[in-house]
Design a protein around this nucleic acid. Sequence first.
DNA 1: CATGAAAGTAACTCTCG
DNA 2: CGAGAGTTACTTTCATG
Lengths: 168, 168
Amino acid sequence: MYIEVFSLNSELDHYDSRILAELQSDARISMAELGRRVHLSQPAVTERVRKLESSGVITGYRATVNVNRLGYGIRAVMRVSRAEYARVVKLIGQTPEVINAYNITGEDSWLLEIAVIDVAHLDAVVTKFCILTETSTAIILNAARENYPILPARQENVKPLIKKTTTA
Amino acid sequence: MYIEVFSLNSELDHYDSRILAELQSDARISMAELGRRVHLSQPAVTERVRKLESSGVITGYRATVNVNRLGYGIRAVMRVSRAEYARVVKLIGQTPEVINAYNITGEDSWLLEIAVIDVAHLDAVVTKFCILTETSTAIILNAARENYPILPARQENVKPLIKKTTTA
DNA sequence: CATGAAAGTAACTCTCG
DNA sequence: CGAGAGTTACTTTCATG
């Protein structure tokens, strides 16, 4: 018999994966409809969703919007070089154009994704960060993939460094 | 009198902004509750949401998940140098670890955001793309901001290159 | 399974061009 | 006077104990 390889998500079964897939593709379906899709009763699926929320697997539900339709002609990514951490965080907090801000490894310690109205607006935002440190900006031409649904990491995807061994 | 400066979102009024803000912070509230928050009746707010959807302003609703809780220990960004467009797109299609894939300007023509289980898994994904062209990977240490809500670009935020002029 | 809330539908009102 | 948007009232569907 094989030794079980447990992971952080060992408690998530097939039903939970189905639920997560459905809610990542449409977060506004009713629990009744979700139950139909995953073949569970409505109270059963509601209880599972509640547990996924309270255990922190599901962190929220958000409408996704088309930034172009909202008047933002340009999306861009800015690489921001090392600078005093607190100052960068503060500046991000003062910049609503920043949609995502990642602190990353390497020479560029920050990667920001921004949405701006036009080139003049882009210039204004870049300048705000240039005052702090060096930046490098690239405009997003298109997205081949966006917010791809994430399913629980499965054991067959894991390539363990230590092979499973048999018990005595 | 000033010439009106129209933009793509000129039809979006204060109510629509409120609706967009609410649905980006919680996409699962009922239309009745949304109506209460923005001070409109349930049928009225439902109709506005329907129009925002059909006009392409709202593109969908998604549950957001904690990738760590799903067994992915590492999030990273990969910069991928110029390569045959179709081959990159095809490879992205074959790689579920890619959450976001942006085609960008500059030397690195692609920026990919990925979620992987561990270093061995990261190595496997990076190698897939290294075969095609040069890559540069940085691990995401933390996110100072994620999916910041986007509101309609407002005229007071726009710095027009051509100033408003008076009519004859 | 029963009760209360929410969604969908229809008829009516109000305002504005 | 007609078009558009909102409200109220009512029926069906959904959520919750």
